[in-house]
Nucleic acid binder design. Structure first.
Lengths: 101, 101
DNA sequence: TCGACATATATCGTCAACCGTAGTATATCG
DNA sequence: CGATATACTACGGTTGACGATATATGTCGA
């Protein structure tokens, strides 16, 4: 799993969110480091939906604009948790080699 | 930076190592999870060399077989350390959203 | 009032990176 | 004498991220 995908799942972990909201959430939680482009976001959202990690929560019409909310599935929550563990293991391993005992 | 690339840098962080040794080191430090294929490894090594994160340490001939050792450059060490920090930040952010206060 | 900007999503083409497979070559062990 | 371990090279395919563009509406400032 790559960084943008991970951050999208993270953004959706707290509560359902629509596409544009995910872009903002990711920028906020990465402290401005990661700015998702529409191409990346909607591509990833489609892919994650197909994989069953994410699903459409509801659709709202706000000011005539469609707003589609997505949420994590239980499968998505599990995948995210697993990825967190994996990243921590790898970060620990790297740090150990960077700062030898 | 993707996972295989990160693990290759990690493997080289402790001491210079040749290609095949990196494959084994990565398998060991990921607890058997990640088995690098030659295509992935040597492609990444070439790319990292071009980027100045890695350089050839020395070449040895062992039993008529070439053995090319690579080592991290200071640039590579810095990149790895930066990536560790980034991963920790993201892992923390994800965990916060997975287990709300 | 007119343009810039924020909100929201859709789509398309491209490229980097990873991946699998196969090939070459030698040494060792059963 | 075949299997396995060591060690690198080469090629082709797929995925995922990316940039750019398009569409549409509302708001705010000059």
């Amino acid at each position: 799993m790559q960084e943008p995908t991970f951050l999208i799942l993270t953004a959706l972990a707290a509560e359902p969110c629509h596409g544009y909201g995910v872009i903002q959430a990711v920028e906020a939680l990465s402290e401005g480091d990661v700015r998702l482009r529409p191409g990346t976001l909607y591509g990833a959202l489609d892919r994650l939906t197909e994989q069953g990690l994410v699903e459409v929560d509801r659709e709202e019409a706000v000011d005539g604009r469609l707003r589609r909310y997505y949420r994590l599935t239980s499968s998505g929550t599990a995948a995210l948790a697993q990825q967190v563990a994996r990243m921590r293991r790898h970060a620990d391993a790297a740090e150990l080699r960077l700062r030898p005992a």
